[in-house]
Amino acid sequence: MNNTNQLPPSEMIKPAILYYGTPVILLSTLNEDGTVNISPISSSWALGDCIVLGLGIGGQAFHNLERHPECVVNIPGPSLWKEVERLAPYTGKYPVPEDKQQYGFTFLKDKFAASGLTPAASVTVKPARIAECPLQIEAAVLNIRVPEHSPDFAVIEARAVQVHAHKDIITHGSHIDPQKWSPLIYNFRHYFGLGDQLGRTFRAEI
């Protein structure tokens, strides 16, 4: 018989945010003048070649994807958290939307210069990749949906068309070595890396 007295106590709460621990993404999109905008986001998941992104509709990334449905999903490692944070208070949208002004955002066009990151030419899409990110996924946007219950955000469905990986994290041809690769995690608005390996699933191929 289970002894519920041994379980940790819990209570009902209403958190202001639900960033319960997801990888940080630096999303490259194409501006109207052909330059590249970089948007740090923390709502993303992938299954097969399907990538789902969550974006605020007031940002430049959403505007860019509506006009030019291509992007690069750049996934930084923990060592790049300072570069990510340098971009955090900036928006590529001008004029700056009022809601972003309230949170202290300011306009910045050249995100590469501000972050110290390096652009790299993509193969299948126009937005540039970010060379320092160990994983870079070129993607084509297939669908954009704004949920009725949350009209300030959009759900972006994209298809991965080309994946780039740093050589030092590749093993057995086309596998990512989980012993050498760790994503930067956004955990309730704080940056973390992964801890020690606990085990592996039965479907692990390496």
Rank of each mutant, 00 (worst) to 15 (best):
G77C: 06
S150C: 06
L47Q: 10
H190T: 08
K82M: 09
L27G: 04
E138Y: 08
R129F: 12
M1W: 14
S42C: 09
W81Q: 14
V141E: 11
Y94R: 00
L184I: 00
G199M: 12
V141A: 07
L117G: 05
Y191P: 08
L108C: 07
T35L: 02
T118Y: 06
G104P: 01
K111M: 09
W45F: 06
S28K: 15
H149D: 15
G34I: 00
F112D: 06
V125R: 11
G59Q: 04
H175I: 00
P69D: 12
I25V: 14
M1Q: 15
H190E: 08
S122K: 02
T118R: 12
T4K: 06
S115F: 03
T29F: 04
T124I: 08
R86C: 08
F202Y: 15
G34N: 04
Q162V: 10
K180T: 13
P40M: 02
F188Y: 05
K14F: 12
I137N: 06
A16S: 15
Q6E: 13
I13T: 11
F62L: 14
L18G: 13
S150E: 05
L80V: 12
F188Q: 14
N64F: 10
L142D: 10
Q101H: 01
V123I: 15
P95R: 00
A160S: 10
E32V: 14
G92N: 04
V84S: 13
K109V: 02
K100Y: 08
L135E: 10
P78G: 09
A121K: 14
H63F: 09
A139V: 03
T35V: 05
Q6G: 05
D152T: 09
Q101K: 02
A131G: 00
L198K: 08
P119C: 10
P178R: 10
I137P: 12
Y90R: 06
N37Q: 03
A61D: 12
V141R: 13
T91V: 00
V36E: 05
R86P: 01
N64C: 13
Q60G: 07
G54Q: 02
S44T: 11
D152Q: 15
P127T: 01
I169Q: 10
K82E: 12
Y94Q: 06
K109A: 09
P97L: 13
G92R: 07
K167C: 10
N5W: 15
Y94W: 01
A120L: 11
A139E: 00
P183S: 12
